[in-house]
Design a protein around this nucleic acid. Structure first.
Lengths: 377, 377
DNA sequence: TTAGTTAGTTCAGCGCACTTACATATCCGC
DNA sequence: GCGGATATGTAAGTGCGCTGAACTAACTAA
């Protein structure tokens, strides 16, 4: 009798499971494989997935017919036996529309292929649009982008500011004056493709997780912009939190004696770290820029240390203006976290800036679609 | 086209999925149902699970034969149509052995039924036993408990101090001088039943999650004893962390100017909160007990606030000596968390002490087995 | 008594992945 | 240069688990 452990498996079963689900699951398994490790033969796929060659052939055939995969011929190297025919993901067989609504002055979007490469861009100015007007701006932007590709569109992903619930309804987004706005439904109705909406920090962490060369441990992406927010991927899945408000870390108090914040509290993380304020402080005449940045970094480290210890995170990624984040601030954050946690928590940890830059949100929005439609990420 | 969202579903498929797995999954689904909501008719189960009556009948028949379920006759109330026959969980059809190795002076264990009720107890003194000696003490305790029930034993669950990996190997437990000790394997070999081992704080959070009347949002259990540790259930599953060290929050620095800690840092949470130290400080001549407790509670709140905000937790449970935790300390922690986080993070949050008391760990260890063997929790 | 309703079972059929068997295509040793 | 070894990929048949449709059982309402 060997020891078992219920790792990763959710404690409660989720629902009815059909054969159809099994097939979709296995399709995802193969896609995922090709997605991460590049082209492979049917036999290779069979070996690594545990499915039989027969089943793999069947599934691959299906996906070839749909266009998601392409046959790539035999590999160059020569070995005993019949040479395999490689199959690989056809990254431009389908395109995805990713939208980033997190900037205050504009809404940007992109046509993204299945490999996370941006194929086209488009953006619209917000110009103070709010409520329904803002929704229509989004609808227009998405339609425009859909017209920019001749490939079938797999779906639309949106990274929106504010709190977004599981159905893609924006519960609350002050900047756009949205409350309980069913954005996913509106887009789905208008465009007739699957639509996924999530908080911008959440899409960012998905982007980083899938396309940012990150590992498989817990990942946290901290977005620094007009505000400060975070997204977390734990155990391979996006954390939503009890009320869908996971990652809302911008208004944690770090310094009760600090500046007054718009949220009526004093000394929130945002009063120190939000890009406009920080930029102003650094530029103040007579200010010691690096020292200011280091001090803010230290404060950030103090906030993150308990989170790192509690979650045993693998990576923390800072996303935002590089001139502010990448340097004394990052270094101080990294150092502070290590000073304030045990080696077992901090040795496995990497603190770095984003590798995707400005595109994290749109690419992450595309991952939302990839995960939802193909089970790939 | 309706909006979709990949909620809760892990982003990456876990592995091959057989029909057999589907059947186990559906069994779990029904068991879970009966487990949470009590007895029901086959027709009720079919309606709420989405399976057909045929399938439910088949599965229920199987589980009746195995003894897990029992027919309970018709309900008292009378309605139109053929009266249903209720089936319900047979809580004492099988028993589970739960072990708690977290105390320094003794190892305790219990025979637990499927409903989480303790049916018998046993314990052994540690008397300084270490390494292999301590392992044999555990083997003996488990064997003794297995002899105390005449029901089939579903498995053995163990809550061990220290870091435990996914295979049930204790990576590091200083008190017992265990390093890379394959405890699950040893027990499985000796007793010939499935064995599950996890960190004591992790088993505690499982116990609280399943039998502590807690909700479905994120749950954190903070164990205060000789040391301080935590366990987390997020999105319905236990969080392990990158290196299996999630919840190791005892050595987060809360006061760099504080007392020196055994871990070579200064001002760790443990230096304030560990039960022996705290008890001593409260009992000091001239000390204002409640004030000391409130101050420690405030510090704890400062550590937990970032975690609460980042995870949007639903519940925080303090488990340990009630005379220390339940009162000014708990109140101060609760207050501090609310002062330091946004309403959206804190309104959905409840901070309380454990409802299972001393039994959290053994009962949680039983849940480990329930989840692993029956997919129930 | 008859009609209507609900519970639970029987039976044929379908989808999916598996096993077994085979065709195909290369290398290797003689 | 040719059979044997080795490996890839396809074809046919099997078994498992679920489903829909039809059936029996047991009760209420009129």
């Amino acid at each position: 009798m060997t020891p078992h452990t219920p790792v990763g498996r959710p404690l409660r079963p989720r629902g009815k499971l059909l054969q159809e689900d099994a097939r979709r699951h296995h399709r995802s398994l193969l896609l995922q494989q090709l997605f991460r490790d590049g082209p492979a033969s049917r036999a290779d796929l069979a070996r690594s997935s545990g499915l039989t060659r027969v089943t793999v052939s069947d599934l691959v055939g299906e996906m070839l017919a749909e266009g998601f995969l392409a046959e790539l011929g035999a590999p160059a190297e020569t070995r005993v036996g019949k040479p395999p025919t490689l199959v690989g993901l056809a990254p431009d067989s389908h395109h995805i529309i990713g939208l980033d609504l997190s900037e205050t002055d504009r809404m940007s979007g992109a046509v993204v292929n299945l490999a996370g490469t941006v194929r086209a861009r488009h953006e619209v100015h917000v110009d103070g649009a709010e409520g329904e007007q803002a929704v229509e701006l989004v609808l227009g932007l998405a339609a425009e982008l859909m017209a920019m590709t001749d490939r079938p569109v797999l779906g639309v992903g949106v990274g929106s500011p504010g709190v977004v619930d599981a159905t893609g309804t924006v519960v609350d987004a002050p900047n756009l004056a949205w409350t309980d706005t069913p954005l996913a439904e509106r887009l789905a109705r208008a465009l007739d493709v699957p639509v996924f909406v999530a908080n911008d920090a959440n899409t960012a962490v998905l982007g980083e997780h899938t396309f940012g060369e990150s590992g498989d441990g817990g990942l946290m992406v901290l977005r620094v912009g007009t505000g400060v927010g975070a997204g977390l991927v734990l155990g391979g899945s996006l954390l939503h939190g009890h009320l869908g408000a996971a990652g809302e870390i911008g208004h944690v108090v770090v310094d009760p004696a600090g500046e007054r914040c718009a949220c009526s509290r004093t000394g929130c993380l945002e009063t120190l770290l939000a890009a406009p304020r920080l930029r102003r402080r650094v530029a103040e005449p007579g200010a010691d820029g690096p020292a200011v940045l280091a001090e803010v970094g230290t404060r950030l480290g103090e906030v993150l240390a308990p989170v790192v210890a509690a979650l045993n995170l693998h990576e923390i990624v800072l996303s935002g203006p590089a001139e502010l984040l990448d340097g004394p601030l990052l270094d101080a954050t990294d150092r502070t976290i290590r000073e304030r946690t045990m080696p077992i928590s901090s040795t496995g940890l990497a603190v770095r800036t984003s590798k995707l830059g400005e595109d994290v949100v749109v690419v992450g929005a595309a991952v939302l679609v990839l995960a939802g439609e193909l089970g790939v990420s």
